[in-house]
Design a protein around this nucleic acid. Sequence first.
DNA 1: ATAGAATATTAGCCTTAGCTAATTTAATAT
DNA 2: ATATTAAATTAGCTAAGGCTAATATTCTAT
Lengths: 224, 224
Amino acid sequence: MSSSRKDRRATEDYLKAIYYLAEEQDPVSTSRIAEARGTRPASVTKMVQRLDRQGLVRYRKHRGVSLTDAGLQVALSTLRRHRLTELFLAEALGLSWDEVHEHAEVLEHAINDRLEERMDAVLGYPEFDPHGDPIPAKDGTIAEINARPMASLPVGCKARVARIVDDTNSELLCYIEGLGLVPGIEVEIKQIEPFEGPITLKVDGERRVVGHKVAAMILMTLCS
Amino acid sequence: MSSSRKDRRATEDYLKAIYYLAEEQDPVSTSRIAEARGTRPASVTKMVQRLDRQGLVRYRKHRGVSLTDAGLQVALSTLRRHRLTELFLAEALGLSWDEVHEHAEVLEHAINDRLEERMDAVLGYPEFDPHGDPIPAKDGTIAEINARPMASLPVGCKARVARIVDDTNSELLCYIEGLGLVPGIEVEIKQIEPFEGPITLKVDGERRVVGHKVAAMILMTLCS
DNA sequence: ATAGAATATTAGCCTTAGCTAATTTAATAT
DNA sequence: ATATTAAATTAGCTAAGGCTAATATTCTAT
Ligand SMILES: [Mn+2]
Ligand SMILES: [Mn+2]
Ligand SMILES: [Mn+2]
Ligand SMILES: [Mn+2]
């Protein structure tokens, strides 16, 4: 490989996947990673062995994988670039919020410190991406917004859209945008039907009804 | 390789290199490619055999390589993305013209049709990159400006900086920018010393002297 | 405690894109 | 025309990331 012709892509995407999966359960199993990445488990096993050798994860046979400090750093840096890129594509190139993710998934690996720095500056050091996901700071700090799913709000309250879980689902994002439920918008909860029933709310003066599934993907912060 | 997990980078850079080298001499020898890319000739031989199999070049043993129509298309498309990206980085991110090239060299392979289209639109369908290099059109058309090296101009004439040959040389670009000799600027040739001697000119009201080497890198168009 | 099922790992192959060393082909100079 | 020399190709290795098929380990249910 001579001067270590690094292809960052695989490494960074693995670490990002492990980062996400670890939120659910910490030593992450190879099969969960395989599932998340759409590769076969055998390939994952080999890859995590490599990542272990590079000191980016700790891997114990049949026991799963955890990020090391170094690996966490790479994961957060990649996440930062991903979200900065999403916002940049929306702001500077006028892409819609339902298409930025797929482009960012590629560009995040082609952005270096200098470009990251410029995007950050041009965007005015933003804290959130177009879907309300927090952009990790350069030092790895990541804002913990305490937002709750729409369905868990008390009826009658006013709340603000904070974040859409899963910026991957383009159709969902289009639908949500059509309802006007973009991050930052204030909403009043009118009614919540039991048994995972629909939620009625007032958005921008308009009365809307959304199903439970969708409501679960929309995280809100209560208005004081 | 399953669903052809293409890494565009190597392929596109090879085709771009062959495109440039073919301007000097058409069937391009493998060793010229090796030299241009900083790899060993043996690696090039293997790669051009692959490119031949893919129909992107025509390769005959010991005889050299030429682009096919398909290969030319890829080369021009890559060049288009490279130059659009350079301009975009300068305009939208405020990078200086001496640093855009190296970033574009990576990004050109991460930009797809959609992003290319957006950059093009945001930039107002530009025809030239920051170094005065023509940006190939989507259909592969490429503007043929007839510009001549500064040293070949008649003394006393007025001319405009059209293009800097070699956008790769960051130090040269910095020096040239310091002289104010950016594309579009009008200049009056005051004096040209023989035997590849220095050229004296008036730029923006200031009298400047540049060496022959540098003057050879600056292409000019005569002002009517 | 143990069989059977579910998970995970290993073995063995593949492709890309690099390298060095050995060999072959072409070019040049006598 | 032939001998050197220079240029190019082949042979054989390496590493990353994939895959499938074969094993091995761990979990679960009796
Ligand atoms: Mn990615
Ligand atoms: Mn996002
Ligand atoms: Mn490139
Ligand atoms: Mn350029």
